[in-house]
Nucleic acid binder design. Structure first.
Lengths: 174, 174
DNA sequence: GCTTGACCTGTTATGATATTACATACATAG
DNA sequence: CTATGTATGTAATATCATAACAGGTCAAGC
């Protein structure tokens, strides 16, 4: 693969309109950019973006949908990688740790991160029909919760915010 | 069972300090009150609080922790009810539909609702150590998300907000 | 160059969670 | 008392996830 051009936020559609899962956009650019960032991020942290891991990321980047571990596994097996669950789960775990993918609790599934490298812990808008996932800003919601938690003496470590509903495309069909 | 006294918010600890999962409180009252409300709520809606369903609610009400469906099932089986998964799942689904219990996605588990009858869609504070669950106010968080969703043309139907961390008791132990 | 050690991949086996499908029982309205 | 709808019981299976171990790869240091 040729070395990708350095990322330029000013010209990157993903940066200009970050929550574009539901909007028409240049997805080839979107995916290629995310992959390029993934190379940069892992190189910087000393982590290894091995063939399996990279392939899993590519699979997740094919669109803005969430895929189950076994779906990913089937794709991997078709590509000649191992076909036992740990192969997929380990690669997915790695990507999540590196901030390159997110786990969607509601679906027991995984989706590529739309903003890799930008520290964030987003909220997700999940289409119950097509399993598209968009990332939304979660900071206000987190802050509100933090207040209640502090009052109760509870220490929050991680917060999951997921909204299930219908994306624009699926709404039109119905 | 004797008819429970009508619910009086002014004298009910659960109403005075609603998020008491982590605080010392008169839990016998707390559970009895929730059970009494459950009878009232189901009677009002025409739903039937059958023996299995009632027993599942009692089990969940034993404390403010989340229990897996199979944990509930084992308890049911010990009480002479069926011991196949659908027995537990159906009762739990019923309780969730009636607003008498909540599903905790993060744990694949269920907890009795702390405020049955009060229309709400709460956020949860979940102790990763003891699986205690407290309910917190989710309205501000939902509102913030709704704004983003509207901008993207996404229709939110249900929102899950779950914070994982340590409750005061488990924090003290560590 | 070889050894060592860390890490990654593959595989077997199993555990944990959840649903489908169908049979039976039970309450109640007519 | 029978038809109907609803609830329960059971078997079988689907789906999601991890533990445990064997073998391979690769780079650092001798």
């Amino acid at each position: 693969m040729p070395t990708p051009a350095p990322h330029n936020p000013a010209t990157c559609p993903g940066c200009a309109a970050p929550d574009l899962a539901f909007a028409a956009h240049d997805h080839a650019h979107c995916a290629a950019d995310a992959l390029a960032r993934a190379h940069a991020i892992t190189a910087a942290s000393g982590a290894r973006l091995t063939p399996v891991r990279r392939r899993v990321l590519e699979i997740l980047l094919e669109d803005h949908r969430a895929l189950g571990a076994y779906d990913v596994l089937a794709r991997l097996a078709a590509d000649g990688f191992g076909n036992q669950p740990p192969v997929a789960y380990r690669a997915l775990e790695f990507l999540v740790e590196q901030g390159l993918a997110h786990r969607i609790q509601r679906l027991n599934a995984f989706t590529a991160c739309a903003h890799p490298g930008e520290a964030h812990a987003p909220a997700f808008l999940i289409c119950r029909s097509c399993h598209s996932v968009a990332e939304a800003e979660a900071a206000p919601a987190r802050d509100a919760l933090a207040h209640d938690a502090a009052r109760l003496g509870f220490t929050i470590e991680r917060t999951t915010i997921e909204a299930l509903g219908l994306c624009p495309a699926c709404k039109d069909q119905a």
